[in-house]
Simulated scan of single mutants.
Amino acid sequence: MNDPLDKATSKAPPVTGEGCLSRYDPDALGPEDGTDFPDAARLWRQIQDSQRDDGDQQA
């Protein structure tokens, strides 16, 4: 019988480790996997500022 997953249009990248320690293999990831996020630092600052502002309002 054919494997139904063979028809999938995308596949998960290879992983390293097992169980709780399994992670996507960084050597196997590339731009086509969506690993490039140039605005990550800006988003992180916005989140931190937002949380800081929320904390000021609660005080």
Rank of each mutant, 00 (worst) to 15 (best):
Q58S: 12
R42M: 04
V15F: 03
Q57E: 10
T9I: 04
V15G: 05
K7G: 14
D56N: 07
P13I: 00
D25W: 04
D54Q: 13
L21V: 06
G55Q: 11
P38F: 03
S22R: 01
S10T: 09
S50H: 10
G30K: 02
D33L: 04
E32L: 02
S50C: 09
D27N: 12
D53N: 06
P26T: 14
T35F: 07
P38R: 14
C20S: 15
A59P: 03
D36K: 13
W44F: 08
L29M: 06
R23W: 00
D39S: 00
P4E: 08
Q58L: 13
K7H: 13
D33H: 13
S22H: 00
D3Y: 02
D54E: 12
Q48I: 03
R45Y: 06
P13Q: 11
C20Q: 15
A8Y: 03
A12S: 06
Q51I: 00
A12T: 03
C20Y: 12
D33S: 08
Y24A: 13
D39M: 00
V15D: 04
E32W: 03
D49L: 04
M1D: 06
P38I: 05
D39N: 04
F37W: 01
P14N: 05
G17I: 10
A40Y: 12
R52C: 03
D53E: 07
K7S: 15
A8V: 05
T9W: 02
V15N: 07
G30A: 00
A59V: 07
E18A: 10
A12G: 04
D54S: 12
N2F: 09
A59D: 08
A59W: 10
G34R: 10
D54T: 12
Q46E: 14
D25Y: 00
A8Q: 01
Y24L: 14
Q57C: 11
D36E: 11
W44I: 09
M1I: 09
L29A: 02
P4R: 05
A41E: 15
G34A: 10
R45I: 05
L21Q: 07
K7E: 15
Q46V: 05
T35Q: 10
A59L: 12
T35K: 13
T35S: 12
N2Y: 09
T16V: 07
Y24W: 13
P38Y: 08
P13L: 07
E18M: 09
D33M: 04
G19M: 10
K7T: 14
R52P: 02
Q51R: 05
P38V: 02
Q48Y: 03
D53A: 09
L21M: 11
R42Y: 05
T16A: 08
D54H: 10
Q58D: 11
R42V: 07
D39F: 01
D56S: 08
T9D: 02
Q58M: 10
G30M: 02
I47W: 13
G30Y: 01
L43C: 07
D56M: 10
G19I: 08
F37I: 03
Y24Q: 13
R52L: 02
R42N: 11
F37Q: 03
D56Q: 07
Q48E: 09
D27A: 15
